[in-house]
Simulated assay, not measured.
Amino acid sequence: MTYDNVLVNKEEKTAVITINRPESLNALNAKTIEELSIVFGELEADSTIRVIVLTGSGEKSFVAGADIKEFSDFNQEKAEQLARNGQNILFNKIENLSKPVIAAINGFALGGGLELAMACHIRYASENARLGLPEVTLGLIPGYGGTQRLPKLVGKGMANEMIFSAKMIPAQKAKEIGLVNEVYPADQLLLKTKELAQMIANNSPMAIGKAIKATNLSDTDKGFETEMTYFGELFEMDDKREGVSAFLEKRKPVF
């Protein structure tokens, strides 16, 4: 299937999704969100794909934010529905996907763009990346999970500082506070992200799927119980038998 605003490239066990609206710095509009939702659903169902990389086209921007022109005249009901719909069909979908999603942040990640990156399981950034949540400069607050996911990643105090001030921070600062995992020169970002994707793809997809679910519950009272349950369930699965056999036979497992 072809899309207007999204490109998909499959390489071995990894799929690279590129948001392709360079003329608007890859800003998220309704159509792009819908297309991304469809693509993620298709890739989750594709048994040949184990890891997904998400990036933006061009050298300037991952996603520069939401397309403000689309909602500038919305009333309360429409605005709330916009946020709820985006969370349900895309942001929560990514966070709860059974396959790891790595954001390759290749420039500006602002507003909805940073929220999109935060919904991913891992974030790598280029040295020229700039990250921020500028919504309060519009008289708004983040509407795609920014007030919820940012404190979990960087702590409440730093999250408040970023949200209240609306300032952009450079990639290295983002790494220092735990917002991104690693920072690379722009021309190495995708290569390094794919290298990580390949390392992950070689591991047990069954175990990784369970790990995602358990980790997503780490800040709830269900976290420990879920971990113990999944730990036990995996003992009945083929991947555990292959992994343990490979270890005992001193060979690499084939999952």
Rank of each mutant, 00 (worst) to 15 (best):
D219K: 15
M1S: 10
L97S: 12
E70G: 15
P253R: 09
M199C: 06
N75H: 06
I177F: 05
K93D: 10
F164Q: 10
L54V: 01
I68E: 14
G132H: 12
R241K: 15
F40E: 09
G112V: 02
E70A: 15
L140S: 15
V101L: 05
L116C: 08
G56E: 02
L196K: 15
S37V: 05
S47N: 15
G113K: 06
C120D: 11
G86R: 13
Q76M: 05
I68F: 12
M199F: 05
L191S: 07
F74C: 08
Q188I: 00
V136I: 14
V180W: 01
L82G: 03
L97A: 13
I49Q: 06
G143K: 03
M206H: 05
Q198V: 09
S204D: 11
E115K: 08
N96D: 13
V183A: 04
N203A: 04
E195L: 10
S61M: 02
A201K: 01
M118K: 12
F231P: 11
I169F: 02
M206L: 08
R50Q: 12
V53K: 08
K69H: 13
A15T: 06
G86F: 08
R21V: 03
F224V: 14
K240P: 12
S218L: 03
L54C: 04
L131F: 03
A45D: 14
I52P: 11
F224Q: 14
R50C: 01
S204E: 07
L97G: 11
A129N: 11
G58W: 04
F231S: 14
E77L: 12
G132W: 09
N181I: 10
N160I: 02
K13T: 12
S245V: 00
R21S: 13
A30Y: 08
L234Y: 15
P185H: 05
A79H: 13
T137D: 15
S61C: 03
G139N: 10
P253N: 09
A117D: 07
N181Y: 07
T226Y: 09
L90V: 08
V8S: 04
Y144L: 14
E225L: 06
A186C: 02
Y124W: 06
A129C: 02
G146W: 06
A207D: 08
T229V: 03
I177V: 11
L7F: 02
R50F: 00
L150S: 11
